Amino acid sequence: TEVDLHLGDITIKLKDVSEEIVKRAKELFKNGWSAEFVKKWIEEAVK
């Protein structure tokens, strides 16, 4: 499945990412993480 994760003005296309990771990524962004950091976190999380 593909998900578009909207973080501010940046959209990250996610492939084969669990709902849990998407939820967590949104929380991290809301908590002040930059979109770049969230993207890196996701990449690490799906390895």
Rank of each mutant, 00 (worst) to 15 (best):
V46P: 02
K40G: 08
T1Y: 12
H6L: 11
K30V: 11
K40D: 07
K15R: 13
D16H: 10
K39F: 15
K13L: 13
D9F: 08
G32T: 01
E20I: 08
N31H: 13
I21W: 04
L7T: 02
S34Q: 04
D16N: 13
E20K: 07
V38K: 00
K40L: 14
I42Q: 00
K39L: 15
G32S: 02
V38N: 00
A45G: 03
E19R: 08
E19H: 10
T1F: 10
H6N: 08
E27K: 08
I42M: 05
T1I: 12
G32P: 01
G8A: 04
A45K: 09
E19I: 08
F29W: 12
L14T: 03
E2L: 12
I10C: 08
L28K: 03
N31Q: 14
L5W: 04
K47N: 11
L7F: 08
D9C: 09
A25N: 00
E44K: 08
E44N: 10
G32E: 01
G32V: 01
I10P: 02
D4C: 13
E44G: 06
L28I: 03
A35P: 05
G8W: 04
K13W: 08
I10N: 04
E43D: 09
I12Y: 03
V46C: 07
T11P: 03
I12Q: 03
S18G: 09
V17L: 06
I12E: 03
F37K: 14
A35I: 14
E43Y: 14
V46K: 07
V17P: 04
T11I: 14
G32K: 02
V3C: 09
T11C: 08
N31Y: 11
K23P: 00
K47F: 07
E19Q: 09
I10G: 03
K26D: 03
I21C: 04
K15H: 13
L28Y: 08
K39W: 15
K26A: 13
W41S: 00
F29C: 02
E44R: 08
E44W: 15
N31I: 09
I12R: 02
H6W: 08
D16F: 09
I12T: 02
K47I: 11
V22S: 03
E19P: 13
K26F: 14
V38E: 00
V17S: 02
T11Q: 06
V3F: 14
E44V: 07
D4N: 12
T11L: 09
K47E: 09
A35L: 09
